[in-house]
């Protein structure tokens, strides 16, 4: 499992801790046993595995959104009027 997290961290630019906090490490390690690097990145970044989104959590934890610093549409409520503020620096 550690090897999977290590590889994922190297490919995605997110730390092992950030990846573990998604709660998806076990599910993804199981799913992506024979994944190419590109497939594994796509899974972590967009929640898509070979043309399907395996769970609502996979979508909600997509790293592309975390890279930008926003919740994927329909998953998080930043609060009334929050959209008016300068975005936080995400990287």
């Amino acid at each position: 499992m550690d090897a999977f997290v290590e590889l994922s961290a190297e490919l995605t630019g997110f730390s092992a801790e950030e990846l573990r906090s998604t709660g998806l490490v076990e599910q993804y390690a199981e799913l992506a046993q024979d994944a190419t690097d590109a497939e594994l990145i796509q899974l972590w970044y967009t929640g898509v595995w070979r043309g399907q989104i395996p769970s609502a959590r996979a979508y909600a934890e997509g790293l592309a959104w975390k890279a930008v610093g926003v919740a994927p549409p329909g998953t998080g409520a930043p609060g009334f009027g929050s959209w008016e503020h300068r975005p936080r620096r995400s990287v």
């Binding site: 630019g13 970044y45 890279a67 930008v68």
Partner: peptide, 14 residues
């Protein structure tokens, strides 16, 4: 890959 990817996505999409 890695941090370069993360930064590129952040910069583009943001």
């Amino acid at each position: 890959r890695g941090y370069a990817l993360r930064k590129a996505v952040a910069d583009r999409v943001g």
